[in-house]
Amino acid sequence: MSNPNWKRVVIKVGSALISPNQQGCSSHYLLSIAQFIVRCRANGTQVVLVSSGSVAAGAHLFPELEKSDIAIKKAMAAAGQTEMIATWDRLFDFPSAQILLTHADLRDRERYVSIRETIFSLLDNGVLPIVNENDTVTTDKLKVGDNDNLSAMVASAAEADALIICSDIDGLYDKNPHEHDDATLLKTVDNIDASIYAMAGGAVKGGVGTGGMRTKIEAAEKAVSHGIDTYIINGFTELSFNMLLNGENPGTHFKPHAKPMQENVHWMRHTSNAQGEVIVEGDFDAQLDSDAEQLTSSEIVDVKGEFSVGDTILVRKEDGTKLVKAKSNYSSCLLNFIANQENEEFANEFEEKTGPIISDQHIANLEKE
């Protein structure tokens, strides 16, 4: 690394740093992180903070209740969120703002653009955005599930130059360093493939967070595809942040793609959820990423799920091969109707009048990713 010249950086802080003992918030580990944010801003770098910890921070307020109960967890999140924001706010002499998100907010294009505009407005006016998943209202259908992946989505939305993910170890090792004394730290990762995921293992057992090293790699994969330098560092040591500011790599650096995805394609690929599927013939080989109009009703074998105009859909072959995620210009009901027309001339004329089945402005090729 050379001396960082970041215009904008996203830093993700986990529950173990916020509330290490689940007895409310502690500033013990947060002071060095806050100082890092202060120094970044002094250097002209805008910062977005993605902070977990609301459930862990609120746990001590419900000592006699079953913590696995979903309703109790939501109550813990509601109570802990105010304490967490207040703790962060006390560490800064500049204003901060709370942004609570669900996956439903991010996967809806209009709301996603609104989130971007809000973040940019806060940053332009010197306000620190503090982002967290809205655990009080999320359901299995609506949640991102972990703030590692959320931080990558936020970094993409914020057009960040760097994403810094704080961990309880120095970075990605070739094997679990808690179990193997000969584990070796990977300082640089040029390409995230199956071998990198194999090093990650599963989620942390017995911790206060919802992720582990695997979710951090998932987040890194999302971020680097958008051209964002990504680091996994030890958030428990002040040295990590000092090294970053001095242009040194304190952990594992995931290098960004040389040709990043465009913002709208990245959103379609990594953030938007497919609401249904369109199954095409097995020998279908059109280049959907370059010419969406090549997909016509004559190639469609089946339509699965219910979706509306503007929803994201998955286009795949009969054998399961995924081709693209794309914005549908037709509802599932209408698409079923024209695809089942025996009169091919009718279907062709209908499509000529109404336009292509999927939008070439919002399409992400999956075979090449």
Results as ranks from 00 to 15, higher is better:
Met84Gln: 03
Thr312Val: 03
Met1Val: 14
Ala59Cys: 13
Leu49Gln: 09
Gln22Thr: 12
Ile18Val: 14
Ala160Tyr: 05
Glu351Ser: 08
Ser121Asn: 11
Val208Pro: 08
Gln22Arg: 07
Gly282Ser: 10
Gly207Gln: 07
Trp267Ile: 09
Tyr112Arg: 10
Thr252Ser: 13
Phe236Met: 15
Lys255Thr: 03
Gly44Asp: 13
Asn147Ala: 05
Lys304Tyr: 06
Thr118Ile: 05
Thr136Gln: 09
Ile300Pro: 02
Val315Asp: 00
Asn149Cys: 06
Ile115His: 00
Tyr197Pro: 10
Ser2Asn: 13
His226Met: 05
Gly44Asn: 14
Tyr112Glu: 05
Lys73Gln: 12
Ala194Leu: 13
Lys67His: 11
Ala203Asn: 15
Val113Ile: 09
Gly310Ile: 02
Lys141Val: 13
Glu133Trp: 14
Thr45Ala: 11
Ser225Cys: 13
Lys187Ser: 14
Ser19Val: 04
His362Lys: 14
Ile115Ala: 10
Asp311Asn: 15
Ile196Asp: 01
Asp291Ile: 11
Asp190Gln: 06
Met84Pro: 01
Leu239His: 10
Ala326Phe: 12
Pro256Ala: 00
Lys322Phe: 01
Thr252Phe: 03
Phe92Ile: 13
Met261Phe: 08
Val280Asp: 01
Asn340Pro: 01
Met1His: 12
Ala158Phe: 07
Val9Cys: 08
Thr252Lys: 02
Glu66Asn: 06
Val278Met: 04
Glu83Ile: 14
Met153Thr: 05
Asn365Ala: 13
Glu277Ala: 06
Gly209Lys: 02
Arg116Pro: 01
Ala42Pro: 00
Ala223Lys: 04
Tyr330Arg: 07
Ala326Ile: 05
Thr312Tyr: 02
Gly310Asn: 01
Arg111Phe: 01
Gly310Arg: 00
Gly209His: 04
Ile119Val: 05
Ser272Arg: 03
Trp267Asn: 09
Glu367Phe: 03
Ser297Asn: 10
Asn264Thr: 08
Glu349Trp: 08
Gly145Val: 10
Asp140Cys: 03
Lys67Tyr: 02
Val38Lys: 15
Tyr330Gly: 06
Asp170Leu: 05
Ser54Phe: 05
Tyr197Asn: 11
Tyr29His: 15
His270Lys: 12
Ser151Asp: 02
Ala79Trp: 06
Glu110Val: 13
Glu83Asp: 10
Val324Glu: 01
Ala71Leu: 08
Leu30Glu: 02
Ile164Ser: 00
Phe337Arg: 06
Ile70His: 04
Gly282Thr: 11
Lys7Phe: 02
Ala347Met: 10
Ile338Met: 06
Asp285Leu: 05
Asn43Tyr: 02
Glu352Asn: 14
Gly305Cys: 12
Leu65Trp: 04
Lys325Asp: 14
Gly80Gln: 05
Asp181Asn: 13
Gly355Leu: 00
Lys74Met: 03
Lys143Gly: 07
Asp193Cys: 14
Ile192Lys: 12
Ser328Val: 12
Lys368Glu: 13
Ser167Ile: 13
Gly24His: 08
Asn264Cys: 00
Leu91Cys: 07
Leu244Ala: 09
Ala158Cys: 10
Ile217Phe: 04
Gln262Arg: 03
Thr237Val: 14
Phe236His: 12
Ser52Cys: 07
Ser328Ala: 15
Asp283Cys: 09
Ser331Gln: 11
Thr139Val: 07
Glu277Met: 04
